[in-house]
Design a protein around this nucleic acid. Structure first.
Length: 302
DNA sequence: AACTGAGCCAACCGCCGAGAC
DNA sequence: AGTCTCGGCGGTTGGCTCAGT
């Protein structure tokens, strides 16, 4: 049916349900609604439609947006992890229980330092850092199943995602054999992964990942062509639940593309930062653009 | 006045399941 | 059984606004 609108039916329906419906509230959320959202999120995770049903006049999109823009940051400022709803101190305690690591005091220090470093290059100590670290942690949990017990981020409520990320997290506790795992031999107990090294170095450039990608091009962490890697083969290759921004950020340290690989050759020293890797990458792209475009080109002059 | 960065939110995307054919 | 359409859902993005510089 043609409505004369340049919209598909789905868009129209969304517009109606999320905005035009007459029973919707358009005023700001009340403290009571805030409390309810936080409590429900704690109980059932990011099931926005279910949460919204408890809030008359609010849509799942409203609740989701409010959570993402306000509540999550609010909780973070209060020292509560918005994912697990646990105080960061408790998470750090849990983190301290990871086996095969140096003493807790050292780890705590390096962990906060890692977060602070991230805050410089991202946007302050916020949930973003936790989410940025999460896929890396998961990668390392997969790569080091023998030495790292998966329980830090695996505490994410199983209901926190509908289709993708949730299922992957639960898979952590049931390790599979992955075709792209021949590199596992490189992660022998004699050289266990060190959180300290990881956090003291560049969190986006774990050197072990380079070994991984050199070993098997298929077992990459590529987000440029995530469809090449199925979840069954290697569930944590896909960065489920992360946007391109996150994935791209990670790319600087972990892609297998020709150019990317070169880029972190130059920035793989422990002292280099994520920002430096971006700058390196930027220089490289600028150098390559003319040949890619077949003509002289300086995008800075646009 | 111009620029910049952060916050906000409607809209979009991709996946999934249900139901019709 | 296979395919298609539709609606629901959660995650993400793009563009607007506004405060700060």
């Amino acid at each position: 049916m043609s409505t004369g609108l340049n919209r598909c039916g789905k868009s129209c329906r969304l517009r109606w349900t999320n905005y035009l419906r007459p029973d919707l509230k358009h005023d700001s959320f009340t403290p009571q609604e805030e409390d309810l959202i936080v409590n429900l999120h704690k109980a059932i995770g990011s099931r926005w439609s279910l949460i919204a049903k408890e809030l008359p006049g609010r849509t799942d999109n409203d609740v989701k947006n409010y959570w993402n823009t306000k509540l999550r940051k609010k909780l973070t400022k209060m020292g509560i992890d918005p994912v697990t709803h646990k105080p960061f101190s408790q998470i750090l305690t849990d983190y301290g229980n990871i086996s095969g690591l140096p003493n807790t005091a050292t780890r705590m220090g390096s962990f906060s330092r890692g977060l602070n470093n991230a805050s410089v290059s991202v946007s302050g100590l916020s949930y973003t850092n936790m989410n940025d670290l999460k896929p890396l942690v998961e990668q390392f949990q997969v790569l080091n199943q023998e030495t790292v017990q998966p329980h830090f981020f695996s505490e994410v409520p199983s209901s926190s995602s509908s289709s993708s990320s949730c299922s992957n997290v639960t898979q952590l506790s049931s390790p599979q054999s992955f075709p792209c795992q021949p590199s596992q031999a490189q992660f022998t107990p004699s050289s266990p992964f060190s959180w300290n090294d990881f956090l003291l170095g560049d969190p986006f450039l774990p050197t072990d990942l380079q070994q991984q990608e050199e070993c098997d091009p298929r077992g990459t962490f590529s987000s440029t062509s995530p469809s090449l890697v199925t979840q069954n083969e290697f569930p944590y290759c896909k960065f489920n639940g992360l946007g391109y921004k996150d994935s791209n950020a990670f790319q600087y340290g972990a892609t297998t593309g020709d150019d990317m690989g070169n880029s972190h050759k130059a920035s793989s020293s422990p002292a280099s930062s994520f920002v430096e890797s971006i700058l390196d990458r930027d220089s490289e792209m600028r150098a390559k653009l003319p040949e890619l475009l077949g003509e002289s080109f300086d995008y800075l002059s646009i």
